[in-house]
Structures are given as C-alpha cells and as structure tokens.
C-alpha cells in the first residue's frame, strides 16, 4: 500500500480546483481527486475512501458529507471535522479562511497540517480576490451613480461638470455623508419627482 495521503477536493469551479491541486502538490506528493459533480457526493467519496476531504465552507453540499460521520460498516472509516488537541487552532484558521476539512479518524495531526496549511493559504487568497472583486464592483456602481447625479445637477442648474462635482462634495462634507450617498439620494429623489 502506498503511504501517500489521498485527498478529495470538492470544487465545482475548475480554475479554483486547479489552484488548490497545484498548491497541495507543491507541498508534497499527494494522491488527489477533484469532484465537481455534487449529486451523489457522499457516495462518490465513500467509494474513494480518502484520508482527507477539502470543501468550501460556503458550499451547501457540505451537509451531504456529514453522512460520512456515521460509518455504517466495519470497512467504513469514520470521518470527522479536523479538531484534536493542539490542532484546534488550525481548524479555526481553516474555518475563517473558508475551507472545511474532513479527516479520517486516527490520522496524525502532523500529517494533516501541511495539507491544511496549503489549503488555507489558497482559500485565503480566494477570499481576498472575492473581496477585491466585490470592492471593485461597488466602486464601479458608485461611480455610475455619481456621474448620473452630476448630469442631473448640470442640467438643473446649468453648471459645468467640475462645478457639479464640487457641489456634491461640499454637500457631502456639510452633512457628514459620503459623496456616493448624496449622489444616490439625489438620483432617487429626482426619479420620484419626474
């Protein structure tokens, strides 16, 4: 029997899956399987009988894996969320990063640690990218609203673009609000009045 740890990664997004696989392979020589299909997930995993399962904590299919906690036969290996003694902190970091790991009963923490470390780093990066994307989207949406508000002011008051923006900014400062919020209020109000 090979001594290599066998790992299953549950991930629908192909790019993300590849990145996780790469990160794990860089850490050690693991036997890795990626499952993207969510139907029959518990059955597929049970058939493979891996040492470790990694899954995004926000993936609702994760609940299916809980069935694995109930080993139904002598050949089945019970699987548990990874927590034991000093490893508790690691599990917490994993959860904060957005990955949950199911680990076969009896596997030594020192064998699990490099796997989780690699996965955690990768998931932290995903999370950062997701936050950045959300931030960019929000900034873009705000810019649009500000542009519309400027347009409304220019038309209503017969002023130029720079002056319109200055007016928005001054109002925001006077009221202790954000320019985008003032712009939003103006656009909403003008929608109601027209």
């Amino acid at each position: 029997m090979s001594d290599r740890l066998s790992i299953v990664i549950v991930e629908k997004d192909r790019d993300r899956a590849i990145q996780i696989v790469d990160a794990l392979k860089a850490a050690d020589d693991y036997d890795i399987l990626v499952i993207g299909e969510e139907s029959g997930l518990a059955r597929h995993i049970a058939a493979r009988s891996p040492d470790i399962v990694l899954i995004d904590i926000d993936n609702p299919s994760r609940d299916t894996l809980e069935e694995l906690a109930l080993a139904s036969g002598p050949m089945d290996r019970p699987v548990a969320m990874f927590v034991s003694g000093s490893a508790g902190g690691l599990a917490q970091t994993a959860i904060e990063a957005g990955v949950s790991a199911y680990v076969v009963d009896g596997l030594k923490p020192e064998r699990v640690k490099p796997v989780l470390d690699a996965a955690i780093a990768r998931f932290q990066m995903f999370r950062r990218m997701r936050n950045e994307l959300a931030e960019t989207k929000r900034a873009l949406a705000e810019r649009k609203v500000i542009d519309r508000a400027k347009g409304l002011l220019m038309k209503a008051r017969g002023i130029g673009e720079e002056e319109a923006y200055a007016l928005l900014r001054r109002t925001a400062m006077d009221q202790g609000r954000r320019v985008a919020d003032v712009a939003e209020a103006l656009v909403t109000a003008s929608g109601l009045l027209s």
Partner: peptide, 15 residues
C-alpha cells in the same frame, strides 16, 4: 448560513 454544518461549526469555533 449556507448549511447546517456551517451553523454548527461557526458555533463550535466561536465565530
């Protein structure tokens, strides 16, 4: 929360 296991784990780990 997206799933029952995440509710349980968020509670267990003090999140």
């Amino acid at each position: 929360a997206p799933s029952w296991s995440s509710v349980r784990d968020m509670l267990s780990f003090g999140r």
